[in-house]
Computed example of a mutant assay.
Amino acid sequence: MPTSPILVTGAAGFIGAHVCRALQARGDAVVGLDSYNDYYDPQLKRDRVAALCPDADIRTLDLTDRDGLAALFDELQPTRVVHLAAQAGVRYSLSHPHAYVDSNLAGFVNMLELCRHRGVQHLVYASSSSVYGDSATPPFSEDQRIDQPRSLYAATKAANELMAHTYAHLYGLRATGLRFFTVYGPWGRPDMAPLLFSRAVLAGRPIEVFNHGRMRRDFTYIDDIVAGVLGALGHPSADEVPHRVFNLGNHTPVELERFIAVIEGAAGRPAQKVYQPMQPGDMIETMADTARARAAFGFEPTTAIEAGLPRVVAWCRDYFGDRA
């Protein structure tokens, strides 16, 4: 009897498409789903899939479609699920709150219910460094409080962790939450600073630098994140602790001005910086304590921004060209 495929949600997304490619490269059968919504250009998502995982079976399906999800689970009978689909973005949550309730809360419950009733043995799901909010101090460890989020997006991700914990302890669903720290790389999200800044500098457009540049981020390269996702997937929790949460970050926060300088060097031209005050919902600093992930499945990020950001700039130049 053939092994059931790994189900990857958000498979046309930045992390999802890279995860699909990595799973296929090691010989796993993969089926994905994605709604191809218009939070950013759906054509980028289609191009991303065509470039990274063209042979992947990716179904167009929304997390709120309970009947469609149930039919997919009945067809595939997956025993492992990598749930990366979500409405992302801190600033977007200020203007489009219902998108987060639909996808990140109702959609997450739909996935939990199906995993519970269809015999899924391990659910790996995306959380976010945003959950740390105002209550944590760098380096952020998984033992710190997450009950003071700075945005609705962060609140929904913290809620996901609570929901998964509940299902794990009530129903024995083994679940692993991954708190991603500012993931970047080729084929990344166009609403995030690495692509926004790279495209603007290449085109000679000004960039907005928030909090007057006094920000530090734990930028984590996509290949390191994918290694962490696959590591977590291969190490499900034990019965006595059915739900676990891990930080996946680079453990090396970078000053925003240094981040911009690396982009300038790769682009071969200076940035036109427009300094702005702090944006609502943003965090001044993020820094991951990754000791728990290192001990559990050998997570050890290796890519510094001096290596990763030039690849982003080169990809932007190649993909966007005159549209940069």
Rank of each mutant, 00 (worst) to 15 (best):
R46Y: 01
A193D: 12
P54E: 04
D147C: 13
K273E: 03
G234C: 15
F140D: 11
A304C: 10
Q87W: 01
D223G: 09
L23G: 11
D218Y: 00
A159G: 05
R244S: 07
L52I: 10
A22D: 14
L256I: 02
D74T: 12
L248P: 15
T252L: 04
G119C: 12
T60P: 06
M1V: 11
M163I: 12
R217M: 03
T302Q: 15
M287N: 07
S128G: 13
F73H: 06
V131M: 05
R21D: 05
S198M: 09
D38F: 00
T64W: 00
I207D: 04
R118K: 15
A288I: 04
L94E: 11
I146H: 08
E257L: 15
T166D: 13
L94D: 08
L178W: 06
F299I: 10
S151Q: 03
F108N: 14
L248G: 14
A266D: 12
R174A: 13
A324Q: 05
N110A: 08
V254P: 01
V183E: 02
R216N: 02
D191K: 07
L123V: 06
A227P: 08
P78Y: 06
R21M: 10
L230R: 06
G231K: 05
P139Q: 03
L105W: 01
A261Y: 09
A85D: 02
C20W: 07
A22I: 06
R258C: 04
I263F: 11
Y171Q: 09
S198V: 09
G213V: 13
T60G: 02
A164L: 06
I260F: 10
I207V: 13
L162M: 13
V109D: 03
N247S: 14
T156H: 04
R150P: 13
R80Q: 12
E257Q: 09
E208G: 14
D218C: 08
P78Q: 05
M278L: 12
K157A: 02
L69H: 05
A25P: 11
K157P: 09
E264C: 11
G13N: 01
D223V: 08
